[in-house]
Structures are given as C-alpha cells and as structure tokens.
Design a protein around this nucleic acid. Structure first.
Lengths: 159, 159
DNA sequence: GACAGATAATCGTCATAACGAATAGTCTCG
DNA sequence: CGAGACTATTCGTTATGACGATTATCTGTC
C-alpha cells in the first residue's frame, strides 16, 4: 500500500489542516497521472497540450474553432494558442484560416494528417488511461468524480 | 451548483469510461486549485515552484540540502534545481555551498531574507488555502484524501 | 596509483504557462 | 462619417518542465 503523503514528504510535522493535506494530495496525484500520460503520448511525438488541442479541434469538425474558443476548452488555464498552433502547423497537424466576416478571428482546424494521427492514438491512449486507474474500481471512481465536482464547484477558475 | 465536466467541455459525447472522466476531473481540479494559489503567492513575488522550494529548504534547517534531495521533495516531477537555485540566489532568498567531503555535491540553503519572507507568507497562505477548500467540509475532505491515496498507490511516479 | 564506470550538478534546447504590450479589425455613438 | 471603446490575435519576456550532453568528482579494481 501507499506510504502516505506524510512519509512521501519526509516530514515529521503534521499538516496544518485537512484542507492543506487535500490540496497537496490533489496536486501530487494529478502530477503523477499527468506525467505517466505524457510518457504515453510521447510515444506518438505529442505533448499533452498538443494532444489536448488536437482532440478539441477534431471535436470541432471541419469548420474549426477560433483561437479564443480553443483556449477556453483546454485543460490548463492559459495556453498560448498562437504558438501552440504554430508548432502544430509546422508539423502539418493543424492549419489556420482567417474568418471572412470578422477578419480579426483566426480559425484553427485539424488537417487530414492530424486526424490520421489521432485515429492511431485513440485506442492505445484510451486503454492506457483506463489501465492507469483500473485499480481504483468503479465505485470509488464514481465517489472521486463526485467529490472533485464538489471541489470545483467552490473553486471557480481564475478568469 | 456545478454544471459538470460534460457541460464545461461543451461536448455532447459522453466519456468513453469512468476512468477517463475521473482522470480529466483530477487534472482540471488540480489546475483550478493551482492557478488560484499561484495568484496568492504572486502577491509576495514568488511562483509556486519557488515557494515550494523555499519551504523545503526551511524544513531542512541550517545545513541545507543537496540539489538532488530538493528535487525529490518537490511536488512536480522534474524541477531543474540548478536554475531554480540561480533565481532564488539572485534574489537573495537562498544560497549555495559546496560540500567539503564530496565536492560533487552542492548544498542549497535558505537565507535569513528567505526565512523572513516565508514567515510573512505563512499565515496568509495557510488561510487562503483553507478558504479555497472550506466549502467541501471535513468529512468529504477526509474521503477525498483517502481516495487520492488509493489512486496514487496504484500510479507510481515515473522514475 | 591509474583507469573505467558511477554520481551530482550544470547547461543547451524545445515546449509550455503567465503577463502584458502591441496590432489589426469592428462597432457604437454623436 | 470619425473617434474612442472593444475584441482577437500576435509577440516579447520570464519561469518552468523534460531530455540529453557535458563537466567535475568519486570509487572500486587491478
């Protein structure tokens, strides 16, 4: 079993509050999941941010999405869509189109190559993700999801 | 209450698996907490990484810690201690000493200025953290901590 | 005592975040 | 119509995180 965060931190001092303990546990757990998944994505030459963006673009369909929309749907807070698109474009996975009506807006769109790459990644990535949390069990996953929902309900994103 | 991740993502397709939903919920929740706390720390001119490192150095006492030890105790996976210490040193919050016995090792140590800054931050940061999760309640925080423990027990860090 | 291999830190490089300033294009109101 | 307010994106800069190569030391062995 786990050694507990207390041991992980090699500290003898107990947490100042349960809130603090939960906060730290959340950050550590998310970091563990994220770095494992990053490793998997790397097998396909993508970072987590890039994979996330491509998934969003695929979900948006042929019309694509304005940069601002992409940013709002990303997991992390303030990704720099301009430069993210630059890198995806350079590798032929995405492209830009300037909107005809409102010429301020740039639409990002996934390319055929991008779609192909995602199709190859779909199954292995999905399975890897399922494996990562298989040991938790459906019942506890459900509880966890509900608790995280409660947390997020009271911690609005920093707009 | 919350709109749920489904709505947050503006997607109509349901999650492929509960594992996937939990994974995403974890990343989003951690990101929300982290960015709020970053905002608080910024009031004192520190980033989360820097604050974390200073706390570790304070905990280590007057002898300080080798770079490698600092790295192992940080929340995030692979912090670059060399450059982190550079920045802290430049601002007078930390300093380096080369070990006498094994001259390969560099000890990082917090300075008086660093200790003073941390003392000023202690109470407000602790309170802010408690506020962030106050709405969850002690009972649910306890459940959450236990569930996260279960998750981490089966998701070893990527060494 | 010299050398091969292991260690600790540093540095080069790319991809991200977080900010803010700068640009370009729209819109609203008088 | 023209000015000022808005909006979407781009770009400059700093701090990170992830890798890998390099440098300075150490250590065990012969």
């Amino acid at each position: 079993m786990s050694r507990g965060l207390q041991a992980e931190l090699k500290q003898s001092v107990p947490f100042g509050s349960r809130e603090q303990e939960a906060h730290l546990a959340l950050l550590r757990t998310a970091d563990a999941l994220e770095s494992r998944m990053e490793g998997k994505l790397k097998e396909f030459g993508l970072t987590g941010t890039q994979y996330n963006a491509l998934r969003i673009l695929r979900g948006a369909g042929a019309d694509g999405l304005p940069c601002s929309e992409i940013g709002e749907r990303m997991i992390t807070h303030d990704p720099d869509i301009t430069r993210l698109l630059n890198r995806l474009e350079k590798r032929g996975l995405a492209e830009r189109t300037r909107a005809k009506q409102d010429r301020r807006i740039i639409y990002g769109r996934i390319t055929a190559a991008g779609l192909k790459l995602l199709r190859e990644m779909d199954r292995p990535v999905e399975e890897f993700g399922r494996e990562l949390l298989r040991h938790v069990g459906q019942q506890k996953l459900k509880q966890l999801i509900e608790l995280l929902e409660v947390v997020r309900a009271g911690v609005p994103p920093t707009y």
